[in-house]
């Protein structure tokens, strides 16, 4: 197999993901409605309650909307990644996952490419969200939009790998919905997406430490710093390391026989 083969395979998976996404346009709208509600309603309501002092990367007092915008970018990716993992369970039950796995190219390559394809869709949504956010005065520097790209890609890959890891162990679609509640919400609320960690530390030191260990916190911070053209080494290193580990675990641990990929229950015929 030459590099060309890999490239055409990569393109095919990307194209299919976009086609599927285009056919499910309502998903695009709903994925944007959620963060916009947080930004326009929740943030407006809590602006007075949660004053945000000057903390890096900001150099002046900021509105609450400005503070939570990077967290909401990460939230879009989080929801999309989990929804993507859901679609992998769906694919598996319908059988299209079998088609992917029948490719002669190495399975880790196929799975990572699939995660990247899902990530590209998420990143597109983040950019549209940021453009709308600009209308309500969330105005990062223009170069910030470009600078966040690596952070967004890394976050998408990290969360996609997490979704794949979870999907590997989920046998049915119904079970997956339950797992969502144990992954998305804790991950989102126990992070710096909605409130700075120093505030959390004041309220509860042990919650603060949980937030510190949450890789989602670091993903949010890497996006936040990049958006304001600054570099947070700790956030980047942590996000990258967690991404590598999760990708390795997700691809190495992917075993079709754990699932109903043959269209029959395991232990069937």
């Amino acid at each position: 197999m030459s590099l060309q083969h890999y490239w055409f395979c990569f393109l095919a998976i990307q194209t299919r993901e976009w086609r599927r996404f285009w056919q499910q346009r309502t998903r695009f709208v709903s994925a944007l409605v959620r963060p916009l509600l947080w930004l326009m309603v929740f943030a407006a309501g809590f602006r007075a309650v949660l004053g945000v002092s000057i903390i890096p990367p900001y150099q002046t007092y900021i509105t609450y909307e400005t503070y939570i915008a990077p967290g909401l970018c990460a939230m879009i990716i989080l929801f999309n990644s989990m929804q993507g993992a859901l679609s992998m369970v769906y694919d598996r039950e319908l059988g299209s996952m079998r088609v992917l796995l029948m490719s002669p190219l190495p399975r880790p390559f196929l799975l990572i490419t699939k995660l990247l394809a899902m990530g590209v869709v998420s990143v597109g949504q983040v950019y549209i969200f940021l453009l709308i956010a600009r209308l309500i005065d969330v105005e990062p520097p223009a170069w910030g939009y470009l600078a966040i790209l690596p952070a967004l890609a890394m976050t998408a890959l990290m969360l996609g790998a997490l979704g794949l890891l979870i999907a590997t162990w989920i046998k049915q679609l119904e079970n997956f919905a339950g797992v969502m509640n144990f992954v998305i919400f804790p991950m989102f609320f126990l992070s710096s997406a909605l409130y700075p960690l120093w505030k959390m530390q004041e309220a509860s030191p042990w919650l603060y430490w949980i937030c510190q260990f949450n890789p989602f916190t670091h993903a949010v911070e890497s996006i936040r710093f990049a958006l304001y053209l600054q570099w947070d080494t700790e956030a980047y290193v942590t996000t990258t390391a967690v991404t590598v580990v999760l990708c390795a675990l997700a691809t190495a641990g992917f075993r079709p026989q754990r699932t109903r990929i043959l269209g029959t229950r395991t232990g069937g015929n």
Binding site: S2, C9, S96
Partner: peptide, 20 residues
Amino acid sequence: ALDLDLTVQQNLMYHAGLHG
């Protein structure tokens, strides 16, 4: 194991791509 929402051609093209 076909993607029901894609056309016949798109399904075949996807498979061809997966084979490089």
